[in-house]
Computed example of a mutant assay.
Amino acid sequence: MRVGIVCPYSFDVPGGVQFHVRDLAEHFIGQGHEVSVLAPADSETALPEYVVSAGRATAVRYNGSVARLNFGPVSAAKVNRWLDHGEFDVLHLHEPVTPSISVLALMAADGPIVATFHTSMLRSRTMQTAYPIVRPSLEKISGRIAVSEDARRTVTTHVGGDAVVIPNGVYVDRFEHARRRAQWTGTPTRPTIAFLGRMGEPRKGLPVLAAALPAVLDAVPGLRVLVAGPGDPAEVTEGMPDRVVAAMEFLGAVSDEDKAVLLASADVYVAPNTGGESFGIILIEAMSAGACVLASDLSAFWRVLDGGTAGALFRNEDPEDLAASLLTLLAEPDRRRRLATAGQARARQFDWSVVADRIMAVYETVIEGRMAARQGARTGWTRLLRGGDR
């Protein structure tokens, strides 16, 4: 099968949608399918051979974050050339109502089209502004996928219609086989917790974690907080108490391999995100690595952690509850092990071997539907020429 996938967000900066597109493409290529991905990227960015650059992206504030997108006539020309060259059996668009090359591809394309909605926003000015522009083209979409119930609710609220829920995927084995690294592994008196994310984005929750740390350090003065992700430590720690800053070890952006090792090494992975999350891919990665997860009780995280059976939850944006929950986990290694074991078992449901098969089933359904529609049209035209049934 020839599959075209459009990623609206730039491959210059790592992100959940980019990782989803990358891993899905590589899984299908491994199965023998021909896959081409169109995504924004700077000219100097090293891209996999299956990725075609749609040109440099511009930073735009979107969904509480900064998204790197491109749009306009130059981008439209590149989209059209890619579509003409690809002759795809199915076109898979990600975030088709975000003003981006996904919208341009939706407007230009014809044939079987599948769209995946990642965003969880019940109120969105950007989406409300873009919707009238893309509304006529949305009827072309034959198969709609939402990565979570929260993303599905966004579809039904803002876009109309419905979508089948198929979660993000993870290569579980890659994380499950990660080995601990001594420098990141805690001890009873110096346990380690890990935070991964763009530290400068408030919605990733580092300020909430920092506000919880004084109470935790009172009880566990040797605690080490391993912070991985892009951002300027001097900026994000400004105004924090000295002992909180001293407890933090900033690792910068880490490779996929080091991310898996970090998650496997920490006593607890903390996800203090405050909102804007439709799924929680990092939770699945942490669970796959055998980490004990402690996350804010966002509805998306609650579902991933199966209501708290595959990881612990605390009240969103409540530093006191975060501190109390973290101290309980640090004091109870048996509970940490039970949660980690349950999390690792649950993570198997999100392995790409499961998720990709469900996405391929959607592809096959829309292709078959398109063929049936064409056959029906030909039959109707033949009957008209013959004067109808006799």
Results as ranks from 00 to 15, higher is better:
residue 12 D to H: 08
residue 13 V to Y: 14
residue 13 V to S: 09
residue 16 G to D: 03
residue 16 G to P: 14
residue 20 H to F: 08
residue 21 V to L: 13
residue 22 R to N: 15
residue 25 A to N: 08
residue 26 E to A: 06
residue 29 I to W: 08
residue 32 G to S: 09
residue 33 H to Q: 07
residue 33 H to C: 14
residue 43 S to H: 13
residue 46 A to I: 07
residue 56 R to Q: 09
residue 61 R to L: 07
residue 65 S to Q: 12
residue 73 P to N: 10
residue 80 N to R: 11
residue 81 R to E: 13
residue 85 H to D: 15
residue 86 G to Q: 14
residue 90 V to M: 13
residue 96 P to A: 09
residue 96 P to Q: 11
residue 96 P to M: 06
residue 98 T to Q: 13
residue 106 L to G: 09
residue 110 D to R: 04
residue 111 G to I: 09
residue 116 T to R: 05
residue 118 H to D: 11
residue 118 H to V: 05
residue 119 T to G: 04
residue 122 L to D: 07
residue 122 L to K: 05
residue 123 R to W: 08
residue 125 R to F: 03
residue 126 T to F: 15
residue 127 M to D: 09
residue 128 Q to M: 03
residue 131 Y to P: 11
residue 135 R to D: 09
residue 135 R to A: 09
residue 136 P to W: 15
residue 137 S to I: 07
residue 142 S to K: 12
residue 143 G to Y: 10
residue 148 S to Q: 05
residue 150 D to L: 15
residue 150 D to F: 12
residue 151 A to D: 10
residue 155 V to A: 03
residue 159 V to L: 15
residue 160 G to T: 07
residue 164 V to P: 15
residue 164 V to R: 15
residue 171 Y to L: 07
residue 172 V to P: 07
residue 184 W to I: 03
residue 186 G to T: 10
residue 189 T to A: 08
residue 189 T to I: 11
residue 190 R to I: 11
residue 194 A to N: 07
residue 197 G to D: 13
residue 197 G to K: 10
residue 203 R to D: 14
residue 207 P to V: 00
residue 208 V to N: 05
residue 209 L to P: 12
residue 210 A to C: 07
residue 211 A to K: 08
residue 221 P to N: 01
residue 224 R to H: 04
residue 226 L to N: 14
residue 229 G to A: 12
residue 229 G to N: 12
residue 229 G to Q: 07
residue 231 G to F: 00
residue 231 G to A: 01
residue 233 P to Q: 00
residue 233 P to A: 00
residue 234 A to W: 01
residue 236 V to T: 01
residue 239 G to F: 05
residue 244 V to F: 12
residue 244 V to E: 02
residue 245 V to Q: 13
residue 246 A to G: 11
residue 250 F to K: 12
residue 250 F to L: 06
residue 257 E to D: 08
residue 263 L to S: 02
residue 268 V to S: 08
residue 269 Y to M: 15
residue 271 A to D: 02
residue 273 N to I: 00
residue 274 T to S: 12
residue 276 G to C: 05
residue 278 S to D: 04
residue 280 G to V: 04
residue 286 A to E: 03
residue 286 A to M: 14
residue 296 S to M: 02
residue 301 F to H: 13
residue 302 W to Y: 12
residue 305 L to C: 01
residue 306 D to F: 00
residue 309 T to E: 02
residue 310 A to Q: 01
residue 314 F to I: 04
residue 314 F to G: 05
residue 316 N to Y: 01
residue 318 D to Q: 10
residue 319 P to Y: 08
residue 320 E to R: 12
residue 321 D to C: 14
residue 323 A to F: 15
residue 326 L to G: 10
residue 326 L to R: 07
residue 331 A to F: 02
residue 334 D to V: 10
residue 338 R to N: 11
residue 344 Q to F: 08
residue 353 S to K: 15
residue 358 R to F: 06
residue 361 A to T: 07
residue 361 A to Q: 12
residue 365 T to W: 08
residue 367 I to Y: 00
residue 370 R to P: 04
residue 371 M to Y: 06
residue 371 M to H: 13
residue 374 R to Q: 11
residue 375 Q to L: 10
residue 384 L to F: 05
residue 389 D to Q: 13
